[in-house]
């Protein structure tokens, strides 16, 4: 731990920028290269309809991955987010069906997301319980609670105005894609240029140094988790409103997809390094791979194995790169 922290402190900002830029450039190239390669094999993959379906159907993963990236940069992890998104979607849908004003139904998901995540942040930061224990416990509380309260019943007859995902801005830009881009840019700017954003890197990079600089570690962590809850709420709304029904269950292994996007996007699992632009690109790449499997006649059942390999390769590459930089 100590050695690694020293290394990241020694790297000059410009060099770090270059390394990160290369991760993002690499992802962008991968997204385009894969599209071309699969397109050559099966031109139907490049149909506008398919590409927009891939983006629309997975924008919520990118939005949630932005929050996850912030959490990982702060040196924590959250495996409860998939279950939380299921719960928030159900809360919002239930309110909408039972005649609550649509805005209230939307806001409820955001508020509940912030409350649950902030609570976890408090337990992690002030009671000093490792994030993995707290979020593993919360995962089962949310999952079990949701299924035993709803019995996994589908929510149907949602009012038309509830469907946030149907909105098109300027007549062409679908709202989920707009939200994905807006959230990514705002979060990237905030993390890069604001004091509270920089504090997250400080806490994740070297908690003791951050403390000596007058940054409150517990407060930063609670803030990070509250924000993550907000993004989870937004992701839940996109998830809930993209279909005509809400299945009140937990989307299986959603948290793994979200963590994969963050890690593959270049967020270092050792904390202190990473940007949300990379995580959004990675979320798009993963969605693209999942769709590509179908077009190159590979069973979609392999997608999770592909995710596992992706995490493994990125994590090992990240650690080896840091080690090489430490040696140089």
């Amino acid at each position: 731990m100590t050695a690694v922290t020293l290394v990241s402190a020694e790297v000059s900002p410009r060099r770090r920028l270059k390394v990160l830029a290369s991760q993002e450039a690499l992802l962008a190239i991968a997204v385009i290269g894969l599209a071309i390669a699969v397109g050559l094999y099966n031109p139907r993959f490049l149909a506008a309809r398919n590409l927009s379906d891939v983006l629309l159907g997975n924008a919520y993963i990118a939005v949630a991955a932005v929050g996850m990236s912030i959490v990982i940069v702060s040196g924590n992890i959250d495996i409860s987010v998939g279950a939380l998104i299921g719960v928030l979607a159900t809360i919002s849908g239930t309110l909408a069906v039972n005649g609550a004003p649509i805005v209230v139904a939307w806001l409820a998901a955001l508020v509940a997301g912030v409350v649950v995540m902030a609570l976890q942040g408090v337990i992690i930061a002030y009671l000093r319980i490792p994030a993995i224990v707290v979020t593993l416990g919360m995962l089962s509380i949310l999952k079990g609670g949701l299924i035993s309260l709803t019995g996994g019943k589908w929510i149907t007859d949602l009012p038309d105005s509830f469907h946030l995902a149907d909105i098109e801005l300027f007549g062409m830009l679908p709202f989920p894609v707009f939200l994905m881009i807006a959230v990514t840019i705002l979060a990237a700017l905030w993390m890069r240029y604001s004091a509270s954003g920089r504090a997250i890197y400080a806490v994740g990079g070297n908690a003791e140094a951050a403390r000596l600089c007058g940054i409150s570690q517990p407060r930063t962590i609670v803030m990070v988790f509250a924000l993550h809850g907000l993004f989870a709420g937004a992701a839940a709304l996109l998830y809930a409103t993209q279909l005509r029904v809400i299945q009140s269950t937990v989307p299986p292994n959603l948290e793994l997809t979200i963590i994969t996007a963050s890690v593959v996007g270049g967020v270092s699992i050792l904390g202190g390094v990473g940007t949300v632009v990379g995580s959004t690109l990675a979320a798009v790449l993963i969605a693209e791979i999942a769709s590509a499997l179908v077009f190159i006649d590979v069973s979609p059942y392999w997608i999770r194995a592909v995710q596992g390999v992706l995490i493994l390769v990125t994590v090992i590459a990240d650690i080896l790169r840091r080690r090489r930089m430490a040696g140089a």
Partner: peptide, 17 residues
Amino acid sequence: LIMTIATLALYRGLAEG
């Protein structure tokens, strides 16, 4: 933690595949 999250996905993915 990270290694076994990665293989949590990988091994389950292999089982499914």
